[in-house]
């Protein structure tokens, strides 16, 4: 008994000592912590996504490697980046549906990825409640990466580069699902789009042309109720009056809540980088911004029971207003993001 007490005391002293001094003991194996910057004037993120996932340079780099690594998919062909391409603001360029394992297709349009920290819920129907668990969906979906976590971890463990990178990011070389998911979240969570022409105008660094300005005014009058500045979405779920796509019969938010009032509601997407993210909507049904605006002008099915009240009278617009609106939407392209080496494959 006495020896046990002595030993436990000693162990406790030792650990206590370690914690007190820990801050100052720098050396190999300790990640370089970095901070996540909220662009000036922006609202607070919906989640403090790095509160339990301390952001570090090494964690970010590991996440980036995972994001671009085909081995996360069953046959090696479908890394995250195959459906989320940087030059398309991490949407899938020109694809209504994305290619997945074994000649299959996704059943929804791959959204652009940026400003994820401001989203209370992910996916078009809000089915995913946290950025860290999001990758489980594409990883395991038979029409996407078609893998299972166990087998992905085996592949990662067999690679010494990953051993090194997990160690650098987390202090030891243990590779597990939690760390893999947290690293991916460090990468995707850091993708912030806040340097478009629109942002530069807001910061007083440049100014809109006359047609862009006209378009901005139309936007504020007709669209901003849902596509709210500065994120260009309010991240709510709404029905914008499109007829159901009968080949998919996608119920949208209702799939998650089971509530009829949520039928055909989808997450309001951000319009940042919208010039790059065509085709548009959850099923990629519109190929151009012109067609999208025509939907709001004349196409909205006003008899839908769940139609959002802001759209009851459609959004009438002259051709001139439509054209300037498109000019404005083009100012939301963030060329810094799509060319940033930090987010590119290394």
């Amino acid at each position: 008994m006495k020896t046990r007490v002595i030993i436990s005391l000693a162990v406790l002293f030792f650990t206590a000592q370690f914690f007190i001094g820990a801050k100052e003991i720098a050396g190999p194996g300790k990640p370089t912590y970095i901070s996540f910057t909220i662009p000036p004037g922006w609202p607070k993120p919906a989640h403090d996504i790095f509160a339990n996932n301390k952001l570090s340079e090494e964690g970010f780099q590991l996440g980036r490697k995972l994001f671009y690594d085909g081995r996360l998919s069953k046959d090696g062909n479908f890394p995250c980046a195959s459906c989320h391409q940087q030059f398309a603001a991490f949407a899938n360029y020109e694809h209504d549906f994305s290619h997945g394992f074994n000649n299959s297709f996704t059943t929804r349009n791959a959204p652009a990825l940026f400003n994820l920290a401001w989203m209370p819920l992910l996916h078009w129907d809000g089915s995913i409640n946290h950025i860290e668990v999001q990758p489980l969906a594409p990883l395991t979906a038979h029409n996407e990466m078609a893998e299972n976590i166990d087998s992905v971890l085996k592949k990662l463990k067999a690679d010494t580069a990953y051993k090194r990178m997990f160690k650098a990011a987390f202090g030891d070389g243990i590779i597990n699902s939690q760390r893999m998911l947290k690293a991916l979240a460090q990468f995707t969570g850091c993708i912030v789009s806040s340097n478009s022409k629109y942002d530069k105008v807001q910061r007083g660094e440049t100014s809109f042309t006359q047609s862009e300005l006209n378009g901005y005014n139309t936007f504020k009058a007709k669209c901003a109720g849902c596509h709210k500045e500065p994120l260009f979405t309010d991240n709510t779920f709404r029905n914008n009056g499109m007829p159901i796509n009968t080949s998919l019969n996608d119920p949208g938010r209702m799939k998650v809540t089971g509530d009829r009032n949520d039928s055909l509601k989808f997450k309001v997407p951000s319009l940042r980088n919208v010039a790059l993210t065509f085709p548009y909507m959850h099923d990629g049904r519109f190929t151009t911004l012109g067609l999208v605006i025509d939907h709001y002008r004349t196409g909205i099915q006003v008899n839908q029971s769940n139609l959002d009240s802001l759209l009851k009278n459609r959004l009438p617009m002259t051709n001139q207003e439509k054209n300037s609106l498109i000019y404005f939407l083009n100012t939301l392209t963030d060329s810094t993001l799509i060319h940033s080496a930090r987010f590119a494959e290394h």
């Binding site: 339990n52 996932n53 946290h130 950025i131 668990v133 489980l136 699902s177 939690q178 998911l181 947290k182």
Partner: peptide, 9 residues
């Protein structure tokens, strides 16, 4: 978010 142990996916 991502959990470990009994709660590991």
């Amino acid at each position: 978010g991502a959990q470990s142990g009994a709660l590991d996916p």
